[in-house]
Design a protein around this nucleic acid. Structure first.
Lengths: 205, 205, 205, 205
DNA sequence: AATGAATGAGATTTCATTCAT
DNA sequence: CATGAATGAAATCTCATTCAT
C-alpha cells in the first residue's frame, strides 16, 4: 500500500492539473456529441457517464450541474472560434480576401465542431439565461465582424452597398444555410469562394 | 320527437363542431406561445392547462398526448403558410415581382405566427421523428419554391445565376436571418423590397 | 312539443318501472361481459357506456358508483343460482340423484353465466368488503349444500365417508376445476354423471 | 494498484452481488404480500416503497416496471415449487406413496408461500399476457404430473380409473380447495394422507 | 478522487364522478 | 331522463443530485 501511495505522489501538481483538464475536456467532447443528437432534457447524466466511462458522481467532480456542463461546452467552443477569427481579422488583407477567408474559417469550424454548433444553432434559448446570452453574443459577434469587413471594403472602394446592416444580416443568414445544407463534399474554401462570388456580384444581376 | 328535441337545442351540430374547433385552436394558440419560449420538455401540461384555464385532463380531450399537441401546432401552421404561398405561386406575375411577393408573405407570416415559427425553426430533431420530418419538409418546400422562381426568372431573362441551388439556399438563409433580426418597425413589403434589391444587384457590386 | 309530452305520458308507471329494470339488466349483462375479460380496474366506465350505447352519465342514473355496479352484477347472479338450487334441494329425490342433479345445475349455470362466474372465481376479494363477503357467502353456501346432501346420503345408507367436511370440500374443488377445464363439448348432465361416478366409487379403487 | 484497492474493499464482488439479491428478494417478499391482499391495480408503487422502507425510485433500480416486479414474483415462486416437485418425481417410490408425497409438498408449499400463490391462483388473465401464460403453465404442469402418477399407478396395478384426465382434474381441483380451506391446524402430511384415502377409496363407497 | 445506490420532486397520463344543459 | 364536457386526484415512471464508502 505504501508503495502505491508513493507512486501516486510522483505525479506533480502540473501533471495533476493537466490530467484534470484532459478529463474535463474528454467529458465535454463526449457530452457535446450527445447534446448534438438530442435535446438538453433528452440527454441524461447516466448516459453521459456511461459513454465517458466513469460513474455518474464523477461528472459532478468536474461540473457543478448539468446546466453548468452544458454551458461549459458552449463557452469552450465559443472561445476557439473567436481565437481563430481574431487571428484573421488582424491581418492586413483587403476586404474581399478577408471576407472569403472568414467565410472559409466559419464553414471549416462548423464542420469540425458540428456537434457543438448544432447545439448552438438549436434555439434552446430559454433553458437558462446564460445560454441565451451566449447564443446572442455569438450572433452579434458574427454580424459585427461582417459589418466591419464590409465597411472596410467600402473604404477600400471594393464594396458598394446601401445598407451595411442588412448586407451583414444577409451574409450571416446565407452562411448559416449554406454551411449546413450545401454540398458537403466541397472544401470550405471552395464553398466560401462560390458563396462570395454569388453574393458579391448579385444573385440575379 | 327527435325533431322536437332538435328544435329545443339551439346549438346544432355545426355549432357544436365549431365550438370544439374554437376550443382546440385556443389551446393550440396558448400552447404554441409557451413552446415558443421554452423547449418541449420545459413546458409542462400543468402549465398549459393553467394558462388555458382548464383542468389538466381537459387538454387530453382534445389532444391524445403532449407529442400530439406539439405536432398539431406545427401542422396547423404549416398548412396556413402553404395555402398562402400556393395562391401567390399560381399568379401570372413575372419572377422578380413574384419573388418579392413571396418574400413579403413569408416575412409577414413569420411575424404573425412568430410563436410557432420559433418552434419550427428550432432543431428539436430528435424529439419525435414527425417533428423532424415536418421541419425538413418546411425547408425543402421553401428552397424548392425559390428554385422554381429563380428558374422562371432565368427563362424570362430577368435573372442570371450560375448556380440555382446555391442561390436558393442563400435566399433561404438570408430571409431567415432578416425576418428575425432586421428592423421590426419596417413593413414586410418594405423589407422584402430591400432584401430583394440588395441580393439581386449584388451585395458588393 | 305538447304532443310529445302527451305521448310520453302514455307510458304508465308499470311500463316505466319495467323499462328501468330492463335497461338496468342490459347494463349488468354488458358490464359483466367486460368484467369477465378484464379486471375491475381495467374496465372503464367509458368502455361500459360505449358498449351499452349510452352516455357515461347515464350509468350513474342506474348505479351509484362503479363499485356498486360491480356488486349488483354479483348479487344478481348469486340470486339466480340460489333460486335454481333451492328448487332442486326441496325435491324428494334420493341423495345420489340429488347430488348428480345439483352438480349438473351448477355446471350448466356456470356455462350460461360464464362471464359473471369468471369474475367470482377471480379472487378480487379485497376491492371492497362487500365483494369479499359475497364470494365467501357463495363458497360457504355451496359447501353447506354438499354437506347436507352427503349427510342425507349417509342417513339413507347410500354414502359412506369418514369425513363429511373433507368430502364436501373435495366436491367443491373438483366441480370448480372440472366445469372450467373439462371437455366443453359434453353436456352438463353427462359431466355430472362422470364426475359423480369417478368420485363416488373412488378414483383409484 | 488495483489489487491494493481490492484488498481495502472488504465487500468483494460475490458479496455485492448477494447483497443485491438479498435486497431484491426483500422487495419481492414484501410486494408479494401486498399483491396477495389487493389486486394488481390496487397496490401502488408508493405503497410498496413505503413498506419496504425505500424511496419509490429505488424499486426501479431492481425492477424495470410494476409489471416486471409482478412477474418476477410469480416466476420466483414457480421456480421453487418446480424444483421441489422434480426432486420427488425422480424417486423410485410406488405411485400411491409418490402421490401422497406430492400432495404434501404442494400443500406445504402453498402454506409457506401463501402470499404468492394467492396471486397465482387469481385469474388476472388480462393484466399481462405473461401472467396468463404463467398461471396456465402452472396448472398444466400440475395436471400433467397427476396424470403421470395415475398412469404409473395403473401400470403398477394399484390404481384403477376409467378416465385419467378427469381423475387428474378432480385431484387438481380438490387439492386447491382443501389446501386453502381445510383445517389449517393439521400438518400437510396429515392432510395429504386424509385427502388421498378419501379420494382413492371413493368418497361415497 | 471516484463510485454508484439511493433519493424524491416532478412529469405525463388516466378515469371515476359531477353537473349544466 | 339523458348527455358528455370538464374535473382533478392519483398512478407510474424518470432522472439530476447527493453522500457514505
Amino acid at each position: 500500500m505504501s508503495r502505491v501511495v508513493k507512486l501516486e505522489n510522483k505525479t506533480d501538481e502540473r501533471t495533476i492539473a493537466s490530467s484534470r483538464v484532459v478529463k474535463k475536456n474528454n467529458i465535454i467532447k463526449i457530452a457535446a456529441n450527445l447534446f448534438s443528437k438530442k435535446s438538453f432534457h433528452d440527454v441524461t447524466m447516466d448516459e453521459i457517464a456511461e459513454k465517458v466511462g466513469v460513474a455518474k458522481g464523477t461528472i459532478y467532480l468536474y461540473f457543478s450541474s448539468k446546466d453548468n456542463l452544458y454551458l461549459e461546452i458552449l463557452e469552450h467552443t465559443f472561445g476557439s472560434i473567436e481565437a481563430l477569427l481574431d487571428k484573421e481579422v488582424n491581418t492586413a488583407s483587403l476586404a474581399p480576401e478577408k471576407l472569403k477567408k472568414v467565410l472559409a474559417i466559419v464553414i471549416k469550424f462548423y464542420r469540425e465542431n458540428i456537434d457543438v454548433l448544432k447545439i448552438l444553432s438549436r434555439d434552446e434559448t430559454h433553458l437558462i439565461q446564460e445560454h441565451h446570452d451566449l447564443t446572442e453574443k455569438w450572433r452579434l459577434r458574427r454580424i459585427e465582424l461582417y459589418e466591419k469587413i464590409i465597411e472596410k471594403g467600402i473604404k477600400e472602394g471594393s464594396f458598394k452597398t446601401g445598407n451595411t446592416e442588412l448586407a451583414a444580416l444577409i451574409l450571416y443568414g446565407a452562411v448559416g444555410a449554406v454551411m449546413v445544407f450545401y454540398d458537403p463534399e466541397k472544401s470550405p474554401e471552395a464553398i466560401a469562394e462560390e458563396l462570395y462570388s454569388e453574393i458579391a456580384s448579385g444573385l440575379f444581376h
